[in-house]
Design a protein around this nucleic acid. Structure first.
Length: 484
RNA sequence: GGCGGCAUAGCCAAGUGGUAAGGCAGAGGUCUGCAAAACCUUUAUCCCCCAGUUCGAAUCUGGGUGCCGCCUCCA
């Protein structure tokens, strides 16, 4: 079976073939650390986390690098507003980033390069670009001359002559800054420092790097001149990734990345979630509602990663319910493993099910398809768990259940879903009514039932239900119970 | 104006030539004094619209319509 993926560069699904057999070099354009991450960032991080996990599960040794942009106007503005430094602001939100992502069960990257730690590589690139005639200094700044790079636009599929400067209404091309450029689409490689701004020494004077150049430098420093997968949000295709290509390939003459992958946006009422629109919810806000982090993961993975996904309370509620189903399946072995004589081997997977999962996900990381397989297993296990809970035994062979459970746990792990056995213990620890009191009430209720006093019997059932105790009447006058 | 993408049930969503997965939500029934669980049945004669190709299309082609993203903050 072969893994295929959609390559933005060619606008086609392609068979994935890494440069070096068995190894994958992967770079994900991370976040600018000037504020807390929102759900849009969570989606990107979850998607690339799972892509990486899946590649590893498929046997690849993955080197995964993710950057932090810690030099940026917005960080600077924030520092100015609160009277602190760019470094302090960046540091704070990097910490917050890790807190949020740990809660979402995002695996750590192999390295998190930062712009502030990459100055040497950046300056070297700018120098080389200048030597090769792709960059020109202008009044303390250095710009990239897009007209010099004749395949400019190949990633985003545009031609310079089709672009309209200022069309997005985000920049004012009357600004003196823009007047320095030879072409409106030239972009800054190096920005001369203004008074009071943090600055680094360079051959072009004191200043700081432009946004795009850091990624070119980081990829080169950490992974090499050509990598396998370069990933990021779809909103980065143009100009960010286009500019990275222009910078890197002008210098090396080699492809920056063989596969370009982009995740779709999170929308709210059909519109992109973003800081500027103000229609965002931060990861911590969402989790503190509270929302189960695994429900957030499920919400993200129910959509194909390239499509937009709309954030609504209903969608989160549905994902939460769905997660409860998966969780019941995942906890099955912890709850009933002893009773059924499960062994701690964990390697008895069902080959046909594993294969079906792989066939689904091999098709351009079709996680919704993979989830179908997980749900089938989880629902089956939940059913068996209910039967065990209500009848105390099941006809299904324990070996079969053990295999199903191990398969579910293993495949869920590939998508980053985990349910800890401790959560069962927690629900069993209660400072409410004691077992003895429950037993006594059940005896009273049985007596009431015998006397056909169903009003009293129902009163006791309701009283216990209110305290989280569910009674199960079985044939033969036996009543089982469990805490919810 | 240009480039790219999307349109499948109440909601989410898979399916890319062979007669509509799955999830969420809902309905009816069997069983039960009532519950719970389990089991059975059920919710798109149809995939935005029109035309075409084909024995056959949600799936391919052409033309529409609507929505979204990008055109130097952006995941």
């Amino acid at each position: 079976m072969t893994l295929t993926l959609y390559n933005t560069l060619t606008r086609r699904k392609e068979t994935f073939t890494p440069l070096q057999a068995g190894k994958v070099q992967m770079y994900y354009c991370g976040v600018t650390v000037y504020d807390y991450c929102h759900l849009g960032h969570a989606r990107a991080c979850i998607v690339w986390d799972v892509v990486r996990r899946y590649l590893q599960w498929r046997g690849y040794q993955v080197k995964y690098i993710q950057n932090f942009t810690d030099i940026d106007d917005k960080i600077l503005n924030r520092a100015r507003d609160e009277g602190s430094s760019m470094q302090a602001v960046a540091e704070r939100y990097i910490q917050a980033y890790f807190e949020d992502m740990d809660r979402l069960n995002i695996q750590r990257a192999d390295a998190y390069p930062r712009a502030t730690h990459t100055l040497d590589g950046i300056k070297r690139l700018v120098y080389e670009l200048e030597q090769k005639g792709y960059a020109y200094p202008a009044d303390g700044d250095v710009y990239y001359a897009v007209r010099q790079f004749n395949t400019y636009g190949k990633l985003s599929g545009r031609k310079l002559e089709d672009l309209q400067a200022g069309k997005s209404d985000r920049v004012n091309i009357e600004d003196p800054e823009y007047q320095k450029k030879k072409d409106p689409f030239d972009f800054a490689l190096w920005k001369g420092a203004k008074a009071g701004e943090p600055a680094w020494e360079s051959p072009w004077g004191a200043g700081r790097p432009g946004w795009h150049i850091e990624c070119s430098a980081m990829v080169r420093d950490n992974l090499g001149e050509t990598i396998d997968i370069h990933a990021g949000g779809a909103d980065l295709i143009f100009p960010h990734h286009e500019n990275e290509i222009a910078q890197s390939e002008a210098v090396t003459g080699k492809p920056l990345a063989n596969y370009w992958m982009h995740n779709g946006m999170v929308t709210v009422d059909g519109e992109k979630m973003s800081k500027s629109l103000g229609n965002f919810i931060t990861i911590r806000e969402l989790l503190d509602r509270p929302t189960d982090p695994m429900a957030v993961r499920l919400f993200v993975l129910t959509a194909q990663y390239r499509k937009p996904i709309d954030f609504t309370d209903e969608a989160i509620a549905a994902a939460t319910n769905g997660w409860h189903t998966l969780r019941e399946g995942l906890l099955f072995g912890y709850q009933y493993g002893n009773q059924l004589g499960f062994e701690e081997r964990g390697s008895h997977l069902i080959p046909e099910v594993v294969q079906r999962f792989q066939e689904e996900v091999d098709d351009d990381f079709n996680f919704p398809g993979g989830l179908t397989v997980l749900f089938e297993l989880a629902k089956e296990l939940r059913r068996e768990g209910n039967i065990l809970m209500h009848q105390g035994k099941t006809e299904t062979p324990p070996e079969q259940l053990e295999q199903q459970w191990h398969t579910l746990v293993a495949l869920a792990q590939v998508l980053g879903f985990e349910a800890e056995a401790e959560t069962i213990v927690e629900t069993n620890v209660t400072d409410g009514i004691s077992d003895t009191e429950i037993e006594n009430l059940i005896q009273m209720r049985l007596a009431a039932k015998k006397a056909k006093n169903f009003v009293e019997a129902d009163r006791i059932r309701n009283e216990l239900q209110a305290q989280g105790i569910t009674l199960i009447d079985q044939p033969g006058g036996v009543t089982r119970w469990h805490r919810n």
